[in-house]
Amino acid sequence: MLILAARRFGAMIAIMAVISFILFVIFESDKLGVAGKVLGPYSSLEQRELWLEQNGYNEPFLTRYLAWVGRALTGDFGQSIRFKAPVADLLWPRLGNTGILALCVFALMIPLSLTLGVLAGMREGSWLDRTISFGSILTTSIPEFASATFLVAIFVFKLGWLPGTSSMTGGFNPVELVLPVLVLVLYDFGYVARMTRASMAEVMTSQYIRTAVLKGLPHRQVILRHALRNALIAPFTVIVLQLNWLLSGVIVVEVFFAYKGFGKLLYDAATFGDIFLLQACTMVAVFVAVFSQFISDVGYTLLNPRIRFN
């Protein structure tokens, strides 16, 4: 078990190293372009070359890459061009804001999708199953920007109940979180519910459930004590991997509602050409994605003895 976790961890580090190198090539192989972005479009060639010299850009490419990795590992991502402040100072509060958003989404999505998935999978083909299945296809077919549009049209423009932007200008306001959280939950719960349903349906047809039913156990007990334990292994990995999807959705939702989170920061950095900020944001996003993959792999092995003891 430990060996497997160590091997997965090694693979994670290898992937992070490769990705950081690819990103460094994409962003920094054009040295003069970097200087132009830092000094502005009206800087002269001499100024740019002086800046490159002063900031160690005339070292060999590999040396520069290793120095960059070293600084990044100690939390120094350089200066943001647009905000004229250290990238790290910008990054952490924004990550915190997105963390609040993600926490609310998971707190709502997990109970909702597991309950619906189990209810649908308990009796495959029943009207409840078909309704839940259709509902989850419907909500996963509506992309975040479209469902945000519908919800804003109803709750902001028609009813006037909720604010249409979530920039939190007047301090933290939970009411401004309602629409972003709702949009993300709507898009994401369907997939987890479908996975839970498939897993539950498979367990319900297995021999040991039949045995439990035949020996006369009450239906409640068959479901709660026997079926659920095995049916929830697969959804666990799906929920952890959902972080990767959530990161994508978060960008759109934060831009839509002007929420000052990590996704909006990444988007603004990309559209403004703030390359050091964009580098840092991309690395953080990839780290979250790769780390959640690692957790889901290890967790799945821990939860499923058939894999653990092989």
């Binding site: 992937i15 990161l247 994508s248 990444l266 988007y267 050409g273 979250v288």
Partner: peptide, 19 residues
């Protein structure tokens, strides 16, 4: 394939399109 799948899709799109 594993390297490319490690990117959150939207981040991959934004990096490619902005570059």
């Amino acid at each position: 394939a594993n390297v490319l799948l490690s990117f959150p899709v939207m981040v991959l799109y934004i990096v490619i399109i902005s570059a």
